[in-house]
């Protein structure tokens, strides 16, 4: 038990120091957490609202509710891909649980995203003139997404040292998800009813839908899909833990320069 507490203390300290180190690398340091999503949403807004002239009052908030969860997901996954390979120096010097490396990435990206989420909620509060009780479900959706991200980060981090080619599949997959998750369109307008089931096989589409239900439409999130995501993610994590027990000691040799 003491070891587990110490392990998480180590993860948190590493995240703190990474954030500090990263901030020192750029002139605008922490401001990039906000600027990056604003850049993306600004571009989408320009294309869809200004050029294609799609006039809906809360389209900007609609875009943010799609883009922020997507960016959180895609950044965590793509950063996790090389986490074990980047950790080769460390894992060749100390005997350390290999989950450390993707976990640091996930906690770090999640912390950044959480800060941006808070800014978004404040923005919506002032824009729509008040809060709604449905916002209380927001932590549940965020937690579901966190569990999903953890499970998938572990998978990509663990598989890529064995089969580096998976990198290409994952990066293409993330780009496809950006177009397929309904970030800049409303599935109710675009997807025909026969393809709705197919659209919602994508967990990110489900999460974005729930975020919008809660933050824009004053509705409940889709509990069934959230629970299903949590359930599947836990199964994946159990599989990962089992896999790591057997193969964890191979990584230092696998990732060596």
């Amino acid at each position: 038990m003491l070891k587990i507490i110490q392990f998480f203390e180590l993860v948190i300290t590493q995240v703190q120091l990474n954030l500090k180190s990263e901030a020192r690398n750029n002139y605008l340091s922490y401001l990039w957490w906000l600027f990056e999503p604003i850049l993306f949403v600004g571009t989408f807004y320009f294309v869809f609202a200004v050029m294609i002239d799609k006039k809906e009052s809360d389209f900007l908030i609609f875009l943010f509710c799609g883009q922020l969860p997507y960016m959180w997901f895609s950044k965590s996954i793509s950063n996790s891909m090389s986490s074990l390979i980047n950790g080769r120096g460390l894992m060749n010097q100390v005997s350390i649980n290999k989950f450390f490396f993707p976990l640091v990435i996930v906690v770090q990206d999640s912390f950044k995203s959480l800060v941006v989420f808070i800014v978004l909620v404040i923005y919506i509060f002032f824009e729509s003139g008040g809060a709604s009780l449905y916002w209380l479900f927001l932590p549940l959706i965020i937690l579901t997404q966190l569990i999903l991200i953890m499970a998938l980060s572990f998978v990509v981090a663990m598989l890529i040292p064995f089969v580096p080619d998976i990198r290409f599949i994952v990066s293409s997959g993330l780009t496809i998800l950006m177009f397929a998750s309904g970030i800049f369109f409303d599935y109710k307008d675009v997807i025909s009813s026969e393809h709705k089931a197919l659209f919602f096989l994508n967990p990110i589409a489900n999460l974005i839908n729930s975020y919008r239900n809660v933050l824009i439409y004053n509705q409940y999130p889709d509990f069934n899909s959230l629970l299903l995501i949590i359930f599947i993610s836990f199964i994946i994590m159990i599989f990962c833990i089992h896999f790591m027990k057997k193969l964890g000691a191979y990584y230092p040799r696998l990732v060596i320069e």
């Binding site: 110490q6 203390e9 180590l10 300290t13 590493q14 120091l17 500090k20 180190s21 990263e22 020192r24 690398n25 460390l90 100390v94 350390i96």
Partner: peptide
């Protein structure tokens, strides 16, 4: 990018 102090903290924890 981090100071000797910060590196000393995290390295000791790694060990």
């Amino acid at each position: 990018n981090l100071s000797g102090r910060d590196n000393a903290i995290i390295s000791a924890m790694m060990l």
